[in-house]
Design a protein around this nucleic acid. Structure first.
Ligand SMILES: [Mn+2]
Ligand SMILES: [Mn+2]
Ligand SMILES: [Zn+2]
Ligand SMILES: [Zn+2]
Lengths: 137, 137
DNA sequence: GTTAATTTGCAACTCCGTTGCATTTATTAT
DNA sequence: ATAATAAATGCAACGGAGTTGCAAATTAAC
């Protein structure tokens, strides 16, 4: 299990420190995105700045990506194994208004948009809000 | 001109105070969205809390809507005259990575998304990033 | 005019994100 | 193995955005 984690870190050229292993492990266990404050809470012994820098490192090396769901703090989720975060790899995100969890919908690519003349597109971000499967009563 | 402004406020059942007239006037003159900090800057004599509450009142009464472009503070833009902010009236937003201005693309409706089973959709927000017409060199 | 309701101004506060700097840990050179 | 160098961590502090309580001022109702 730690094998898999170190492998993942190595594949993104991130040196596998204890802290980084812990954070990645936690993120791999969760199926929804996690924010820095949540991370602080769940790894209470860890320092905020270290966690912050860990996330930044992960993000820079495309192990994770950030999601701004317009609801509280930035959230982070694992990238797919071979992801390079290119425009064509972008997917939409779902934010549940009940449990406040945010999910990557990796199967649903971001929609194609044709802009008015003069506008030059470089990326598209789509956040869908609604009620998730768990919260439907 | 103040005629038009008071009319707009009245049509949304917002009492036309001096402060509110000023804020609405400013927003009508701008063609891009504006944030609370920018508003503070441009109406330097006005108080932050008052401006904040003015925006909240405007938003509640659907005179304006908020835009989370994932880049700094929340921005606000005027709704169309007859807008009720229903899902089918939602449009996409464009955020220029050069000048950092954000525009409503009122002509471009938010894309239709079909979610996996179990997910229940209530709204869609799409932000397109790129370079705006003014910033293309 | 007096009273009640609304709006404004000021101050304070929380939360998230970010940075400087000293200490610890890992890597490299001798 | 030891010393020098580089990288990661911990702690503390800070700044911006958003938000609230409360008193003063303004506006509306009686
Ligand atoms: Mn994602
Ligand atoms: Mn808009
Ligand atoms: Zn949910
Ligand atoms: Zn621009």
């Amino acid at each position: 299990m730690n094998e898999q984690i170190d492998e993942k870190l190595n594949s993104r050229e991130i040196k596998p420190t204890a802290m980084r292993e812990l954070v990645l492990k936690l993120m791999m266990e969760k199926l929804s995105a996690i924010s820095l404050p949540e991370l602080e809470e769940q790894l209470s012994y860890a320092d905020k700045a270290t966690l912050y820098r860990t996330l930044k490192t992960f993000e820079k090396n495309k192990l994770i990506h950030s999601i701004n769901d317009g609801n509280g703090p930035l959230k982070y989720a694992l990238c797919m194994d071979d992801c390079e975060c290119e425009p064509e790899e972008l997917h939409i995100h779902f934010s549940c208004t009940v449990c406040n969890k945010t999910y990557c919908l990796n199967e649903i690519p971001v929609p194609k948009i044709s802009l008015p003349k003069g506008f030059n597109l470089t990326s598209v971000e789509t956040v869908v809000k609604g009620v998730c499967a768990n919260c439907i009563s």
